[in-house]
């Protein structure tokens, strides 16, 4: 059985006057955790958007779970930066926010039922937010809101979870809680792709790494013998050999 979750081949993307991604190649198997590191504007978020289909890529190919994005959309979860994701004055409860992402399971016009409510309870329990189920999402702290957004991504049982800077603007204690949740999901077999400015945290959690730097990118298919110093060197523009 092929356990490949995502394969990216010769991916290229340019913004007007700026080449952002050049010939990006990597693949992930079930249970892999890919960390993506790089300076602002290096292409980390662009790569996430290309995988999600939010931006059209020029050349290359992205295969997810053996198919095209539109066929497997329901199997992909996405957590963005907290600040990008919603208006904090929006009158919605935690439950309403999470259950809304069951759309891929339900389809148009169908109403939510008891099984859906049970699924919401399960994912809120998983992220430790059960007791806040009926609270307004805007009344929660940044860390709590981000845990709710992780629950929202998980409610549709994704096989691939994409996270774009999920811990930006969140206090240190909450970052630790969120990373703990993410690592537990990964240990249970979920494939994760995460961009993050917090290199030590990502190095600790991920088993694979993409580092976007001045001359393109470096791919490490194992983070076990990779040090922070070497990552700093790569980000500073010093070429290193790929590890495999």
């Amino acid at each position: 059985m092929n356990n490949e979750v995502i394969r990216v081949e010769d991916l290229n993307f340019n913004y007007p006057d700026t080449a952002v991604l050049r010939d990006v190649n990597f693949n992930l198997m079930k249970g892999d955790f890919l960390g993506i590191i790089g300076a602002n504007g290096a292409g980390k978020s662009t790569l996430i958007k290309l995988i999600l289909g939010l931006l059209p890529y020029e050349t290359g190919k992205i295969t997810i779970l053996g198919g095209e994005l539109q066929d497997v959309r329901a199997k992909i979860g996405y957590v963005s930066q907290k600040a990008n994701s919603f208006n904090t004055d929006f009158p919605a409860t935690v439950r309403e926010v999470v259950i809304a992402n069951l759309f891929p399971r339900k389809g148009l016009f169908k109403r939510f039922n008891k099984a859906d409510e049970k699924k919401v309870d399960e994912v809120l329990d998983l992220v430790g937010m059960s007791e806040y189920k009926n609270k307004l999402i805007g009344s929660l702290s940044g860390g709590q809101q981000q845990r709710v957004f992780i629950a929202r991504a998980l409610v549709s049982d994704p096989e691939l979870l994409l996270m774009d800077e999920p811990t930006v603007g969140i206090d240190a204690a909450s970052v630790a809680d969120i990373m703990d949740i993410i690592c537990r999901l990964n240990k249970n077999g979920m494939t994760i792709i995460m961009t993050n400015h917090d290199t030590p945290t990502l190095l600790n959690a991920a088993n694979k790494l993409l580092i976007f730097c001045e001359h393109g990118y470096e791919e490490f298919v194992s983070t076990s013998d990779l040090s922070l110093e070497r990552i700093t060197d790569i980000l500073a523009g010093k070429r290193v050999h790929k590890h495999g």
Binding site: L52, A74, S80, F103, P104, R152, S156
Partner: peptide, 22 residues
């Protein structure tokens, strides 16, 4: 009322709604 959950989803977060296939 028929489109209640779809209208909620696109009103709250159109990007996520679009990603979920709405």
């Amino acid at each position: 009322l028929l489109l209640y959950k779809e209208i909620f989803a696109i009103t709250f977060d159109e990007t996520s709604a679009s990603l979920s296939g709405i």
